[in-house]
Structures are given as structure tokens and as C-alpha cells.
Write a protein that binds this DNA or RNA. Sequence first.
DNA 1: CAGGATTGTACAACATTTGTACATAAATTC
DNA 2: GAATTTATGTACAAATGTTGTACAATCCTG
Lengths: 334, 334
Amino acid sequence: MPTPTDSDLPASHGLYPIRHVCAETGINPVTLRAWERRYGLIRPLRTPKGHRLYSAEDIARIRRILELLDEGVAVSQVGRVLQHETPAAGSSDRDRHAPLLLDDAAFGTHTHRPGGGIAPHVLDPITDTLLETTRALDTVQLERSYARLLMRHGWEGVHERAFLETYETLREAARHDPLDEARFAVFTAWAVSSLSDQLRSALQLCEGPTCPCVVPASGHRRLNGLLLLLASARQGLRVLPLQDVVSPAAMQALTEQLDAPAIVVHTPSRSLQSSAFEGLQRLLRADGVPAFLAGEGARGLADLNGPRPLEILPPSPLAAADQLSRQLLDPAER
Amino acid sequence: MPTPTDSDLPASHGLYPIRHVCAETGINPVTLRAWERRYGLIRPLRTPKGHRLYSAEDIARIRRILELLDEGVAVSQVGRVLQHETPAAGSSDRDRHAPLLLDDAAFGTHTHRPGGGIAPHVLDPITDTLLETTRALDTVQLERSYARLLMRHGWEGVHERAFLETYETLREAARHDPLDEARFAVFTAWAVSSLSDQLRSALQLCEGPTCPCVVPASGHRRLNGLLLLLASARQGLRVLPLQDVVSPAAMQALTEQLDAPAIVVHTPSRSLQSSAFEGLQRLLRADGVPAFLAGEGARGLADLNGPRPLEILPPSPLAAADQLSRQLLDPAER
DNA sequence: CAGGATTGTACAACATTTGTACATAAATTC
DNA sequence: GAATTTATGTACAAATGTTGTACAATCCTG
């Protein structure tokens, strides 16, 4: 067994003690340890007694860190950058340079990997991307992927079809595999939050009369409702989102108070507690401003006869939004 | 349609502190902050402690702003121009740069609104403001008011008490008056959306292991759950929000896949369909990583004996988040 | 020209970041 | 076994940031 040469490096193993690394890079050992402790920037191997052993890659990584620092990146953020620079490196590497504690297991390698998992290729390529990214269960990654898709294909391009298609595909897959169920849950949560967010932004730019919209609070129609709201708001229609559990009385009061020109009601899921469902029926049957019926089940609700004018919107959220805004917005302002 | 630059978004995912941005662009940090405060020209990300982090895009945007200023455009108008220039690129971006706050305009210490105050002053003044604003049923205004409160009292100041107090007050009022029910619905919808949005932003800065959190999908505990998630994320804990309808199997799969150090379960509403409720019980009874129980009813769930370690969190969402992050995050000098 | 809004900057009071120092214990080297 | 190096935890301090408030110089506008 060759003893490590005294003065210099045990280069035979390619592993260097901290003193060598510091001499090489000019960093104070204390700093190097602080980086490791605080940000997990480098995670050297250890001797059985705990002494650090840096590999050549570690040193290269440190050099890269110095570059980034020089560039002005905050030390606390360097880790994130590096993580994105070396996404596909072997998972062992990833473990080693993870932030402080353990790290997440998978994260979206997301290079077009047609050999991949769940999705057959009949699907829209956009859907494919979304699905692929969702597999990693990393919402931040999902966010990025989504932003990129938006940039490439435009809002309509992504939401015309792919968005709901992704949702449905995942929903289907969720039936068979618990992990897919988890993916479905994560995607749904993210989607709802993202759409709500966009809705809020879009509404800031809307003017004109407010139009209360009753949309499903839960269930698989929820995204449809949100898409309808968002698409309408993007056209400039100032919608006011309400969940389908509001009482008819509240809706009436609201409509009056706001002097709303119309209300929109999205078909609720069948599973909705019948009390709420009946509430909606009662609302529609009551007198008042015109009501627009959205969603696949709209036709079924249109039979109610009452004094309130009812109008059926197309099943596609985007198309429905088009028609809505066409009828409710003053053409002069657009 | 060929995309002009199909190159991926920012090659550098670096996030820069304000000092670097200022050195780079020559703007006084004070000015940069004033632009943000007054016109929302750039809305950088924030570290959990509130330090600004500018992305490469942000810097590019600042350069563009300087160009416009040079062209003679008024600072106050730059936002409008930019918004027009960048039409449909991710709406979330639009939100990030939306104008929001007022400035030096001395908004009085909220003594009396000329519109006639109804709320008795036993309530927190912050609550009072929120209630007052909610009366108008205008979410955009609510947004502004909220932003102002945040500025004045800080996030904790607003959410420690006032936020939920407002919610409960409205919920109570909703029982008696349809219009108040409508207000309650509007406030809730807005609150959920706002908190979700903040959560998404906060998560972008979180590192470390992902911690799945089961929170109520609906009902009056929903905001509690969201607050817990958000407060935790603000401390740097990378939570993964899941609604309380996920199956135990999915949770197990998820936990394994992510190699999560623990799971968090917020007490569901009693009204939760018993199947889902039992699912949670089953999940808690199963073997696995430690589970933290949050919410007022946590104590009631802790009796289950199973192999999984259970720990009860304080009922206040903020306090719970504190404890959570203290136990799950690396104790390195925070 | 007076009164008001715009807009860049200054300052105070306080919090965070981050490199480094120190004390103590343990390992390594000679 | 003495001298040196390292690990770990705690602690600091200087630089940097943050918010709220204030103010002066401009620029409008009637």
C-alpha cells in the first residue's frame, strides 16, 4: 500500500486534502467549509475520520463558483445556477452537490426523450412536453417548461388544446398508478395556481362592468372554468370569479350591487352536492340579467324555463370566452 | 412559423443582488427601489428574508428602461410602454411588473374613511382596512390595499392575525346577509389566489429536500393550510402542496420518490367526505417518515398509534411554519 | 406665477449576508 | 509525543440591504 507522498498530493487517487485545494484556488479553508455548511456548494468525500477529500471535479467546480462570484452572482444563489448547468450529470454527482441536506430525488432532466414513459405519441407535442416535465414532480421545473412553451407557442397555442389534454391524460393515468396519482395532484395544484395567478394579472388590466362568473370549485371541471375566466379576462372582460357554492341570494345581491350586465355559470360537476347544484338551478330560474351557460353540460341546464334569458356558450373555454367578450364588451374599446 | 431565437431562455439562471445590478447599469440602488415601489417597473424575486434578486431578464429590462428614459419617455409611462412591447409573454411576468403601490403620498394611519366606517374598532386596524376594502367588491382595489398593508406592516404583521381575522369576520357576516356572503366569496377567492401566487414565487427560492404537505382543498381550513405552506416556504422550506383528497398510496409513492424527510398533514375539515378523512388516518397510521400535524384539530389526530412518528405543530400557521422550518432546515446560521 | 405633481436622492434605524476568527477536540505527521 | 492540520460550533464585524420618511429640484398647469 503506497503511502501518500508527504508534501504533496495523493494524486494517485485523485483526491486532495483541503490545504491543497485552498492553495490551488486561493480560498480560505474556513470559507470553503462555510460554503459547504451554508449552501452545500461542494460536498467533498470524507476519510473515515471526517477529513475532507476533494476530487479534481470538485476543484473544477470551485473554479466555476469563483467565476460566477466574479460575475456578480450572489453566493447564496450559486448553487441554483450550478444545478441548472449540470442537470443531467450522474445522479451520484447530483447527490453530492445538493444543497445542505439531502436533496430531491429526481428533477426534470427534460431533454426530449421520446423513448420516455407514459405518453404515446399521438399527443400534441406540447402536451408531451408538459407530461414529461410533470414526471419529475418538480413544480419549479414545470413552471420553467411552461414559460418556455408560452414563449414558443403563445398563450392560445398552449391552452387551446394541450393544457387540458395534459390534464386529462394525467387524470387517466392516475387511476392505475399511485405515483401517477401523485403527479396528477401536483400538476393540478400547479395548474390551478398558475391560472389563478394569470387571471389576477389579467384582471388588473380589465375595465368596464364586472361580470360575476360561477365556476366549479373543485373536480375536473375546475380547470375548464379557470380557463374560461382567464381567456375572458385576457380579452378585457372584467370577470369576477365565484365558486359554485355561493347561494343564489348572494349572487343576486352581488349582481345588483355591481350592476352587472350578465352572469356566467359554468356547468358544475355532477358530483356537486345536490344542494349547491339545486342552488344553481334556482339561480338560473330566477329573474335577472342574462345568464351565459358554459361547459359541456350547459345544454342540459338550458331547459329550465324562467324569466331569465339563457344563452349557451361553446364547450371549448377559449371559444366560449371569445363569444362572451364579443357580446359583453363594447366593441369601441377594444 | 419559425421562431426568431429558439435558443433557450436565459442561458444563465443567475440571480444577482442589487449591488451588482446597480454597478452594471449605473443606477442608484435607491432609485431602483423607488421605481419598483412607485411604478412596479421591475419586480425582482426576493430571498426569504426580503433581499432582492434580479435575473438576467430583469437586467435586460432595466437596460430597456434606460433606453426609453433616454428617449424622453416619462418614468411613470415606461411601464405602459413596456407592457405594450411585451404583449403575451407569460402573463405571470406581467404580474411581476404590474404597477402597484403608492408612494410618499402620505396615506393616513387609517383613522377614518370618509365613506363611513361600520366596523367597530375592537378589530385589528389591519383587519379593519381589509374589511373596508372588501366592501367594495373590487378585487383590484383589494389587491392594492393589501400591497399597501404589506409595505406598512410587513408580511408577518399582516398575516399573524389580521388576515384570518378578516376571513372569519366575513364568514360570520356571510351568515346573515346575502351581500356579505358575496363579499365573503370574493374575499376568499382573492385570498386563495393571492396566497397561492405568493407561494409559487416563494418556492422558486427554496432549496433542499421537498416536503409534501397535505392541506385542505376547501372549507374554512383552506386558508390556514395555505398560510402554513406559504410561511414555511418563506422560511426556505421547499414544500409541495397537495390537496387532502390524495390517496394514501399516492402520498407514499410521492414521499418515496422524492425521498422526503417528512410529511405535513393539515387537519381537514370535519365535513370532508369520510373516505378522504379515513384516507388521511390511514396515511398517518402507516409506516414512513415522520409526519407533522398542523391545524386546530391536530391533537385529535395524534392518538393514532402506528409506526410513523407523529408530531403536533402549534395551531397558528406562522408559528407552525416556524417550528417546521426549524426542524427540517439545516440549522446553519440562518 | 402659484400650487401641485414628478422624480431622484438622502438619511436613519435596523436586518441580512458573508468572510473570517476563535476555542476545543480530534486526527495526522514526523 | 510534540507539532501541525483539520473539523465543528459559535461568534463577529464590515459590507450590503431594507423600509419609511423627507426633501429639493423639475416640470406642469391653470
